[in-house]
């Protein structure tokens, strides 16, 4: 090259920076986030293996042991037995699978619908935006539990119907979030750059805008998991969600309600499990927000 090479000589290498490692470092620095992560890991573990590890698998399938009704906590039954003589711990462990999978399905379906609606509204703008967002507002005006109750009552009880029912009230939050993010990212310089190189609208949306809205969506999903689990339990509790004998935390609580306070242990395990899962997901969500979405930090 000529003598100009020296003038345009590039800067020396910056050290390779691993974004993930930095994020993990910051995450690990917060004890609460780590606690949340451990709690969620435990919940996930029981979701996968709860049914297999349960000490009395026959009770999960509906088996009863009338001789052992309402036994208080002991070594054999750490959380006692219920009105059918079933081991409460086994039921709660198996219930983890049902509750968490139901919660996860609700959040996933809500995210997919919400992202779709929000992304189209934010990207298209104009009357499409107007229609989609008024529809979102309309859905938001109906309290979630009431809407879910109405839909569940219309469709009848059952796992799938309940998930459909809750998901229908779940997406508007995501639609609003994603629309807002899309509107913000749409004005970024790199989106203009993509327009200038002739990228098609779908390419701009899928390649340039949506990937940059993922962080807040993930944060909201993890914060929402706890609420979704509570909602599933709530429907179970009032008797229009999952029906016994399928073990589900809300249903378990609902049944044990009749035997309070004499046989308090029947309610304790499902209540604690719910508290544990919801708390864990919330801590994790807060931690994720701190590392993924620095704008929202305190």
């Amino acid at each position: 090259m000529t003598d100009t090479a020296e003038h345009i000589a590039t800067e020396p290498e910056l050290p390779k920076q691993d974004k993930l490692q930095r994020a993990l470092f910051r995450f690990r620095q917060s004890r609460l986030s780590m606690l949340g992560a451990v709690m969620v890991a435990l919940v996930v573990f029981f979701t996968a293996f709860g049914t297999l590890l349960a000490p009395f698998p026959e009770h999960i399938a509906g088996g009863v042991d009338t001789a052992a009704r309402f036994q208080p906590p002991s070594w054999a039954h750490p959380f006692g037995t219920n009105e059918l003589g079933q081991d409460v711990l086994s039921l709660v462990m198996a219930g983890t699978t049902v509750s968490v999978l139901a919660g996860l399905s609700v959040v996933l379906i809500g995210t997919v619908i919400g992202t779709l609606v929000g992304a189209i509204a934010g990207f298209a703008g104009g009357w499409i935006d107007e229609i989609l967002m008024r529809l979102t507002d309309l859905t938001l005006t109906i309290p979630g539990l009431i809407l879910a109750m109405a839909v569940a009552a219309a469709l009848g009880p059952g796992f799938t119907n309940m998930i459909i029912a809750i998901s229908l009230s779940w997406w508007p939050g995501y639609a609003r979030l994603v629309r807002g993010e899309v509107l913000a990212v749409r004005e970024e310089s790199y989106v203009n750059a993509a327009r200038a190189i002739g990228a098609s609208p779908s390419r701009i949306l899928l390649r340039h805008i949506l990937p940059n809205t993922v962080s807040p969506i993930i944060v909201k999903m993890s914060l929402d998991m706890g609420f979704a689990i509570l909602m599933v339990a709530g429907l179970g509790f009032i008797g229009i969600g999952i029906r016994p004998p399928t073990p589900e935390w809300g249903t378990l609580l609902s049944v044990s309600r009749s035997y309070m306070p004499d046989y308090w242990w029947t309610a304790m395990a499902p209540g604690m499990a719910m508290f544990f899962a919801v708390f864990g997901f919330n801590l994790l969500g807060d931690g994720l927000r701190d590392i993924l979405d620095p704008k929202a930090r305190r």
Binding site: T4, E6, H7, I8, A9, T10, E11, P12, P15
Partner: peptide, 13 residues
């Protein structure tokens, strides 16, 4: 034109 004497490199770590 083209004869601006730049400063190669950047501020050290």
């Amino acid at each position: 034109r083209g004869m601006l004497r730049g400063l190669a490199g950047s501020v050290p770590n």
